[in-house]
Design a protein around this nucleic acid. Structure first.
Lengths: 217, 217
DNA sequence: AGTAAAATTTTAGTATTAGTTAAAATTGGT
DNA sequence: ACCAATTTTAACTAATACTAAAATTTTACT
């Protein structure tokens, strides 16, 4: 049998946690990771400092919670690619990802930033998403090869790593505040297309060159 | 006319500054940027806290000094490429850079880390090196084109950006502690070669594929 | 509606850090 | 041996993360 008054309490607790996470997200996105102090967090959420600790534990646990939500969301959107054509697949993939990020830019920037600063990208927590991304990219290359878009002269795993790397670098620059989402898309897309061009059959190579020239600098 | 006793005093001052910078470098490289406290800095250098402030100013000015030395060193090694062949040029370029980094790995890791953390890469201080790197990469592409290694179907500026990006991503991973210098070289080289392959004439393309397959995973 | 118990927040505090400063002690050059 | 530059001693302020225990709120039951 449940203890007294668990349901409503739990719900309110969740509301406060959400509020705190929202404040954290905005603080990090607007003023940078170092601006995230428990004091500001508490003030912004309308609670006192120990409440933050009661709800999350250490300050880093707040960031950890933010990051966990990021991983869940990104994992969802990282579905198997349906398109076979490398150009279309690249654009669709980026559109998918970027649509997610645009839906709550402050949150995603903050969560990535926090993840970086806490060294969360080297640990198992993220390992799943990392490996999944590479696998999706590899599958993309293999299917392109099967359908005659690629020559197969370069190992799919290296192409995949490069595809992923192009996107990762652009994301870094976006998270660091150097570029906006539009440039993120452009930079990542060019990187992916150049990568495909490295092993493309003549027909695809021609199309990639055309597509790249369209992209204004 | 110089004031009394300036020469030796100045020299000793420099020695103390060097000592402090060395301690800072080791602290950052071994324990991370957040481990850098003025207290540890003073203790490690065998001086007191006010001395650190007297010699450098704010704590960040110590990191700034570290970063300035990095910029100077990297700028020196970023000479115009002498080789025309893209494969040879890529390897030579990376060997040059990596030789520099291996000569004092702790220093370079610490300085890059500090630069990132202080947001020094978006400011003018580094702008010079950034632009110079891109320019070197562009020149490389143009010369490769002139000598019949490239087809000229893809804009040199985009290829250059991608070349630079490949190296930058590998560097990031090294600075973050995910990979060592040997993997840095391999990762960057593969990225650069794949980039060249995207616009290579058949002969070069063949050679790049061969070279890439040699590189063990 | 009132009340006792449980969950939760707050009050008030600790410990560590960065960054200063004034005056005393030390160091180095001539 | 003297003088000037420099470092140290010995304080201070302000900000940070975090915690134990008291006070408060909320729930479920009568």
């Amino acid at each position: 049998m449940a203890a007294k008054g668990q349901v409503t309490r739990q719900a309110n607790k969740e509301k406060r946690k959400e509020k705190i996470l929202t404040v954290a997200r905005n603080l990090i996105a607007q003023e940078g990771f170092d601006a995230l102090t428990v004091n500001k967090l508490a003030q912004g959420a309308g609670v006192t400092i120990p409440t933050v600790h009661n709800l999350f534990g250490k300050k880093n646990d707040v960031v950890l919670a933010l990051f966990q939500r990021l991983v869940d969301k990104v994992d969802d959107v990282l579905a198997e690619p349906e398109l076979v054509d490398p150009i279309q697949a690249s654009e669709a993939f980026l559109d998918n990802l970027l649509a997610l990020y645009s839906s709550d830019e402050a949150f995603y920037r903050a969560a990535f930033l926090g993840g970086e600063r806490l060294g969360l990208f080297e640990h198992e927590l993220n390992e799943g998403v990392f490996k999944k991304s590479i696998r999706v990219a590899e599958r993309l290359c293999e299917r392109a090869l099967e359908h005659g878009y690629l020559q197969g002269r370069l190992d799919s795993r290296w192409l995949a790593q490069q595809l992923f790397g192009s996107q990762r670098l652009a994301r870094q620059d976006w998270v660091s505040g150097y570029i906006d989402l539009a440039h993120y898309r452009q930079q990542a897309l060019i990187g992916m297309l150049i990568t495909f061009a490295a092993d493309a059959t003549p027909a695809l190579h021609e199309r990639i060159c055309d597509r790249v020239s369209q992209l204004a600098r």
